[in-house]
């Protein structure tokens, strides 16, 4: 479903990804951990082409993202993404944040888009906040709107980029709860996070990145208590 082959990415002289190989199968929940600067967020942004790459290939459902005949906008419609800083559209209320892409990108009618948006906002527990503007919502609520907004495009897979890192501790659970339900519903997910509890309970595979490469991967329930690589051991001993 998602395949990264020898992906290299640098910002000027700074090498961020130095040959990342990763395969994500349909329905998998891949949790990516690693120290800051290890390239995990950059890798996520390369999956939907928000960052151009210098070398390697990104293949989404058999299509090469950087192929000459590929329209990256079409591929992005199938990949939902949720950001650390929410990035809701501040000039639109919650309902219209969710409705915008189905209407403008998929050319759905207003009625149809609104139906989708209401249903999704209800599912993330915000039925009473449809008319609220982002600045009137708590961080946890904003992030749940952002998840609904991504889901409104009916994506085949979802990318989560440290989505709880900007939240107050008491708001983390409501966002993780929504993500857990999404995973249980069979969504293919790549989750960059520091939440080890989430990795253990929801993750079907754990990836440890450091220095721009995948250092170790495995079943989170085996890997968290017994990491094999010294770098993984060191990292886990610091975060647990």
């Amino acid at each position: 479903m998602i395949e990264l082959i020898d992906v290299h990415k640098s910002f000027g002289h700074l090498l961020v990804l130095q040959g990342v190989n990763l395969t994500v199968a349909k329905g998998e929940v891949v949790v990516v951990i690693g120290p800051s600067g290890s390239g995990k967020s950059t890798m996520l942004r390369c999956i939907n082409g928000l960052e151009p790459i210098q070398k390697g290939r990104v293949i989404i459902e058999g299509e090469d993202l950087h192929g000459t005949k590929t329209d990256p906008n079409k591929i992005r419609q199938r990949i939902g993404m949720v950001f650390q800083s929410f990035n809701l559209f501040p000039h639109k209320n919650a309902l219209h944040n969710v409705m915008m892409a189905p209407m403008k990108v998929q050319k759905k009618s207003r009625t149809e888009a609104e139906e989708i948006a209401r249903d999704l906002l209800d599912k993330v527990g915000l039925a009473d906040k449809m008319d609220a503007f982002p600045e009137e919502l708590s961080g946890g609520q904003q992030q749940r709107v952002a998840i609904a907004r991504a889901l409104a495009m009916k994506p085949d897979m979802m990318l989560f980029d440290e989505v709880t890192s900007a939240l107050d501790p008491e708001l983390v659970a409501e966002v993780l709860g929504v993500m857990q339900r999404l995973a249980e519903a069979g969504m293919t997910m790549v989750v960059v996070t520091h939440e080890m509890g989430f990795a253990r309970e929801v993750g079907s595979r754990l990836i440890f990145m450091d220095g721009g490469v995948v250092v170790e991967e495995g079943d989170p329930r085996e890997m968290i208590p017994n990491p094999k690589e010294p770098r993984t051991q060191k990292f886990l001993s610091m975060v647990l």
Binding site: N48, L50, N73, K74, R76, Q77, I79, G80, M81, F83, N87, L88, F89, M100, A101, K104, V105, A146, R149, A150, M153
Partner: peptide, 8 residues
């Protein structure tokens, strides 16, 4: 980025 990630 948010707009582009939605396929715009």
């Amino acid at each position: 980025e948010a707009a582009r990630s939605l396929g715009m």
